[in-house]
Nucleic acid binder design. Structure first.
Lengths: 221, 221
DNA sequence: ACATCGCAAACTGTTGACAGAGAACAGCCG
DNA sequence: CGGCTGTTCTCTGTCAACAGTTTGCGATGT
């Protein structure tokens, strides 16, 4: 069997590795990442490390000239701004999806929500994070606007994951979210761009309020 | 007189230089950029060149592994998608600006529009591009959402400039745009988020239609 | 004991070099 | 004369080394 030994470059490998490490909590927010140390640990040179960290700049790390690279940390304010951005971009994505969606894609979405419903009924809400991400990114993909879906993937969802790591969601939030997802799907099925965008934006606002309220509660405790 | 010789890194210098070269038309869309050649021309090593081109990836250039870097080229479809993204993000920016704007900032905006009006009355419409950019970016800044303003700057405006290079705007479009800017300012002054967002989105849709119509006309000619 | 100064270690920014992959081109065969 | 093949040449991906800077620790003086 012939297969390529290594398709992607070392830099991509390091990129994925570092993303995993950050979004899984191995690297704490604010922690300083040293190029040389990473290079030593991974057993490669500093070149690919540099490239990977550069690609992560503004997404998951901050670079300060002559100082180094550190994992981003953002408080309630940064999180709120992230939700503003999501609301704008995903609202537009829902609008475009409503204009372009095919019957086939509608069926796929319905099945997805069915699975989510079963999962919620069956187990704890742990899985809700990835379910939510699935639904939202599918909508972004169906918008047909690569600009928007790429930016959501690279700029928003990574940062969201970093936050979701250390905060659980309010009990009952999963059910709320599912109901809101169903409402969005309803307007997608109706091919109603205005209502689809409105429903998506309301959903994200709702998620924002829920998240920030929980955050405030935890901080004050 | 003591002053730092070089505050910013070579990579930043190269970044700015390449952005200028692309947005000024020195590098044509689709043209292949060679790291080594750039390095030779600028008289520095390939390292900073690499970093600069990496930072431009997805914004003004595309990288293909093992092949190289080329200036992005996008047709009517990419341009339309860019306007969708603008509509979403700048609409939200206008909303947030309406919520937070200070009297001082309102005065600044008024003076800016006054200057624009004088410019339009006095000369050809050549300057309209940068004027428009000024107004829109100011709104983004006033939104207070660094996420949005940074993304607009790095992902949207660069690409817009590349397009504006090779297409003039329809006669009379400058006046229309100014009127729409005034309407946006009106709702900002009224601190009406809903109307401010609606006016901004209508303005960008209007610009989209105007731009795309002109593009189609030119293509068919 | 405390503050200050100086030094050394570590790290980042940059450079030059090497190996492998792609592309262009000349030559050969049908 | 056209298509295939082997060579050469350039370019990217990667690595090791150098220079300048920041940081932290220790010595020194008060």
């Amino acid at each position: 069997m012939v297969e390529p030994i290594r398709l992607n470059s070392l830099a991509s490998e390091v990129f994925d590795r570092v993303v995993d490490a950050i979004t899984s909590g191995e690297f704490e927010p604010g922690e300083k990442l040293s190029e040389s140390k990473l290079a030593r640990e991974l057993g490669i040179s500093r070149g690919p490390i540099r490239e990977a960290l550069q690609r992560l700049e503004g997404k998951l790390v901050q670079r300060v000239p002559r100082i180094g690279v550190r994992v981003i940390e953002f408080g309630a304010d940064g999180l709120r701004q992230l939700f503003y951005l999501r609301e704008a971009m995903e609202g537009m994505a829902a609008r475009l999806a409503a204009e372009n969606i095919s019957d086939q894609d509608l069926l796929e979405l319905e099945k997805m929500l069915k699975r989510h419903e079963d999962t919620i009924r069956g187990s704890t809400a742990y899985r809700q994070k990835t379910m939510d991400e699935d639904f939202h990114f599918t909508i972004a993909r169906l918008s047909g606007c690569t600009n928007i879906s790429n930016l959501l993937l690279s700029e928003v969802y990574y940062q969201l994951r970093i936050h979701r790591l250390k905060s659980s969601s309010r009990p009952g939030r999963a059910e709320e979210a599912l109901a809101e997802h169903k409402k969005i799907l309803h307007f997608l099925r109706a091919r109603d761009p205005d209502q689809a965008e409105a429903a998506m934006r309301a959903h994200i606002r709702s998620a924002r309020e829920s998240t920030l309220a929980l955050l405030d509660a935890n901080v004050s405790v």
